[in-house]
Structures are given as C-alpha cells and as structure tokens.
C-alpha cells in the first residue's frame, strides 16, 4: 500500500485514495471544433510511459480533493504532489 502525500492532508495510506489516470489532459472547451480523430485521441489515447508519470489521484476518503502526482511507474516512488491547476514541477 503506497503512502501518498495529499497536498492538503499530508501523507496518507493509499486505501484512502482513488486513482484518476493520466494528468494534464484538459477537456476541450469547444469539443465541436475537434474532428473525429482528435476527439478519439482526447477520449481514449493515453501515454503508458515507463518512468516518471504525471497522474491524477483523489483523496476520496479524506478531503475529497483531486490533485496531481509525479510517480515513477518502475519504482512506485512519488516525486511530488501538487494541486489541480498548478504546473507540473
């Protein structure tokens, strides 16, 4: 069970969190401007990198907030967490 540093509550056990997939994929503000190909990419295609990855978590059984985290997918080590809207460090 990972220990995740919620930017609001501090280190908490993974069991309090929900994983939210890849971070920094904003929903288009004008989806109508997207052609089918672009829309499909937004909707379905995600990176699957080995190494450092920015991903979303929600402290669902805690403060309820979504936030972003940098995690190394090969070691499970977190290199930092940051609030929604903040740039990737």
């Amino acid at each position: 069970m990972l220990l995740i540093d919620c930017p609001y509550c501090g280190n908490r056990p993974e069991i309090e969190f929900t994983y939210g997939g890849q971070a920094h994929i904003a929903r288009p503000t004008q989806p109508a401007d997207y052609d089918d190909h672009q829309w499909t990419e937004f909707l379905y295609l995600r990176d699957n990198q080995r190494g450092l990855r920015a991903e979303r978590w929600r402290h669902s059984h805690g403060c309820g907030r979504f936030f972003n985290a940098l995690r190394d997918t090969t070691t499970d080590r977190f290199h930092g967490t940051y609030k929604v809207g903040e740039p990737r460090p």
Partner: peptide
C-alpha cells in the same frame, strides 16, 4: 458524485 466532483474540481473550476 465522484464523476461530478471530477468535473467540478478539475475541468470547470
């Protein structure tokens, strides 16, 4: 509720 919170907190701030 989780889906709503997702949109509220991350897309439509």
């Amino acid at each position: 509720l989780a889906m709503m919170e997702d949109y509220r907190q991350t897309e439509w701030t």
